[in-house]
Amino acid sequence: MAEELIYKNEVSTRVEGYWYLVGKHLKKHKLAIFSIVLLSVIILLCVVGPYFTRYTMNEMGNATTDVLQVPSLKHLFGTDELGRDVFTRVLLGGRISLLVGFSSVFSALLVGIIVGAYAGYYGGILDTVLMRFTDIMFSIPVLPLLVVLSSVIPGAGVWKIVLIIALFGWMTDARIIRGMFLSLRESEYSEAAKAIGASNTRIIWRHLLPNALAPIIVSATLGVGGNIIYEAALSYLGFGVMPPTPSWGNILQNAQYAMAIAPWLVWTPGLAILITVIAFNFLGDGLRDAMDPRLYR
């Protein structure tokens, strides 16, 4: 009986899990919630929208009557110089732009995690080598090199753009993760994991990485927005996604020739990029605040 009593005292009151708390704090961040809703709508529109529009991507209208139409009920965003429906093309372009944004962030993150985790965990020479390499990659002027690379690497696929953007996007992640691992490897649970006989690889991937998740998620969220911009810039310069495959960047580029007489062609892809990137940035900001460990420790 007495023992039972002692046990009862030892049981602490129930505390909610970390992700529940993150969600709770995120809800207070109105802009972030608004961004989530906005992004969901944009992603949903881009993914399922094209199935419901009346036009296909490259369907051209009548050469005289359907070219450069002002937005109307028939063509929500008007038509371009070939008489294609801009609404359909912006939705399809969104698919490509978002795909590039997400997959380049994902690939960059993979490289960044591997480089950062091993450099931070092992330290010493490996750390020096990997981090100096990161520094070198950082000091390369990216945009000109992106342009050069995209003309040097053969092929015109979307994956080429993903590869090129990822190639120059992993360094920030690597630095963040290295910093996290430098402190995590000194943690007592890292030592405790060693004491139960876990291998270094296991400690890195299973024990420490989940603890570094918060900054990774924030960085990834902000990264998607940044990489959409990169894709747009590359496509705008004519080195990105090749027409007739639409992306927000090359729709924009395509539009500039007719800008003086058909400004709506610039407005829609431009706004799509702007809104999406801003939404990702707000969301990243909100996540950073919500995941701030100082709120929970």
Binding site: E188, Y189, A192, A195, I196, G197, P210, N211
Partner: peptide
């Protein structure tokens, strides 16, 4: 030695607050 750690020799640390991984 890794096979011995945890199976034949085990260890309890000073800080129960920080020796358990917070995310599991």
């Amino acid at each position: 030695i890794r096979k011995i750690r945890g199976s034949e020799i085990a260890m309890i640390f000073q800080e129960p607050m920080t020796s358990l991984n917070p995310v599991f």
